[in-house]
Design a protein around this nucleic acid. Structure first.
Lengths: 240, 240
DNA sequence: CACTGGACTGGAACGCCGGTCCAAAAAGTG
DNA sequence: CACTTTTTGGACCGGCGTTCCAGTCCAGTG
C-alpha cells in the first residue's frame, strides 16, 4: 500500500490496527471535549460532532454506545488532565496534598464547566477512580483511624466534585449570554430589593455577593473541611 | 373527542380571578413535582404533563415560559417544603441549627432526587433565597467576623446543595433500573479487581463502599465542616 | 339581556434531536 | 483475483420542546 494516498481527512489510527485514517474513540472523545468547550453541553450534538469529524452519526456509534457514555468519557478525560497537572501525592503531606489536589480539580472543571456535573461518585471511570484513590491515600496519611478513612475520603471527594459543580453550574446556564460580573451585579440588586425583615442576612451582604470570587469560595469551604479534619485526626493539640 | 363528561377535571381557580376551572401555575407545578417523582427527569415531558392535566401543551405555556423554568419552580417548591419542616432558626444555636437545616434539605432532596441538581447558587428563586438567608443568619450567630460570614455561608450552602446532588445523583441514573445495594456491590467488586499497586486505597476499602450509608456520608462531611467552622470562629479556647 | 373583547385552551405543526438501519466502500485474506 | 470482515455515513424513525392560532369561555359593559 502506498503510504501517501490523498487522504480526505486527518485522523488517528484505530488502536486495534484498523484501517488507516479510521476514527478512534480517543479521537472522538478529543473532538467532543473541544466542541463541548465551545458550544456547551446544550449545544453539543452528535450531528455537530459528526460534521466536525467529516462523517455521519452512524460511524460514531461504532466506537461509542450512546451520547451519555461519550459525555462521561469526555468528562473523565478532563479529570485525567487535571490529575496529570496536580502534584504527585508523594510530594506533599496529607493536608497540603489534599488542598492542592482539590484545587487542581476545581481549576480543571472551571476550564471545562460542562464536565463538572458528570464526575460522579461512587467512581466507575478510570480517572475518577484515580482521584478517589489519591484522596483516600492522602487521608490515610493524616493519621485518621482506619474506620473513618473511607467516609472522610468520600466527603472530600464529594466536596471537590459536588461543590465545584455547584459553583460552576450557573456559569454554564447564563455564562454564554451574560457576563459573570453583570449577572452577579443584577442578582445583588435583586437581593437589595428584598424585605430586610424576611431576609436579614442577604440584604446586608449584597456587597459581598457582588465582589465575591468563585475560587475563593471554593477554597474557603475546603479549608474549613481540612481544618475540621485536622481537629478530628488530632483531637486536642493545644498545649500538649 | 368526548369532553362531555360530567366533571372532566378538578382544577384550582386562577389567582387573578380568571375563569373557573382554569389552570394555575401552582397547579401545574404541583403536577410536575408528582410526575418528576414517578417518572424521573428523563421521563418527564410536557406532553405527559399536559395529558395528566387533561389539556394540551399550549395551555401550559400560558403559565410557564419554558420547561426549564417549570423544573426550576418544581425544585424550588421541594426546597420550600424542606424549609417548612426544618426547625425555625430561632429555636437553635448556630451549630446545631445549621446541622438540622442542612440535614432537612438533604432529606427533602433524597425524596425528590431530580430536584437536587436544580438548586443553584447564587440564589434567585424564593425558597432558595430563604435557605441561603437562614444559613447566613445562623453563621452570623457563631461569632464569626462579619467579613468572613458571606464566604462561610456560601460554603455551607454549596456543601448542602452540591454534595446532596453529588450523593443523590447516581440514584437517579441507575436507581430506576438497578437496586442501590446491588449497584454498590457491583461497584465494590469492580474495585476489588483493580491492581493494588495503582489503587492502594480503593482495593482495601471495598467493604466500606459496600456497607456505607449515603446519609452518613453527607453528615460526616457536614460535621467536619462545622468543626472547622467552630475552630475558625473561636481560634483559641474561651478567652473572653 | 345581548354583546364583546380579552383571557384562556388545546390540537396541529415545525424544526431538531438521539438513535437505528443498511447498502456500500475499504481493508484484510488466500 | 474473489471473498470475507470491518467500517462508514446518509436516510430514516419516533419523539421532544416549542410555537401557532382558530376557537371557547365569561366578566363586564351599555
Amino acid at each position: 500500500m502506498t503510504q501517501n494516498e490523498v487522504m480526505p481527512r486527518t485522523r488517528g489510527r484505530a488502536p486495534d490496527g484498523g484501517r488507516d485514517g479510521a476514527l478512534s474513540q480517543e479521537l472522538i472523545v478529543g473532538a467532543a471535549v473541544a466542541l463541548l468547550d465551545t458550544h456547551g453541553e446544550r449545544g453539543f450534538t452528535l450531528r455537530l460532532l459528526a460534521a466536525d469529524l467529516r462523517t455521519g452519526p452512524g460511524a460514531l456509534y461504532w466506537r461509542v454506545s450512546s451520547k451519555d457514555e461519550l459525555v462521561a468519557l469526555a468528562a473523565d478525560r478532563v479529570l485525567g488532565d487535571a490529575l496529570a497537572e496536580a502534584p504527585h501525592p508523594d510530594d506533599a503531606d496529607g493536608r497540603a496534598g489534599l488542598r492542592a489536589l482539590a484545587v487542581a480539580v476545581y481549576d480543571a472543571l472551571d476550564r471545562h464547566p460542562w464536565a463538572a456535573s458528570h464526575v460522579t461518585a461512587p467512581a466507575t471511570l478510570p480517572h475518577t477512580l484515580r482521584l478517589f484513590d489519591r484522596i483516600g491515600t492522602l487521608v490515610a496519611r493524616t493519621g485518621l483511624p482506619a474506620g473513618r478513612q473511607f467516609a472522610t475520603a468520600s466527603a472530600l471527594f464529594s466536596y471537590t466534585t459536588g461543590v465545584s459543580a455547584q459553583i460552576i453550574a450557573p456559569a454554564v446556564t447564563v455564562g454564554a449570554t451574560t457576563d459573570r460580573d453583570t449577572f452577579l451585579a443584577q442578582t445583588a440588586e435583586r437581593w437589595a430589593w428584598l424585605d430586610p425583615a424576611d431576609h436579614p442576612f442577604l440584604t446586608r451582604t449584597t456587597a459581598d455577593l457582588r465582589d465575591h470570587d468563585d475560587r475563593d469560595q471554593f477554597t474557603t469551604g475546603l479549608d474549613l473541611l481540612l481544618t475540621g479534619l485536622d481537629a478530628t485526626a488530632r483531637p486536642r493539640p493545644p498545649e500538649v
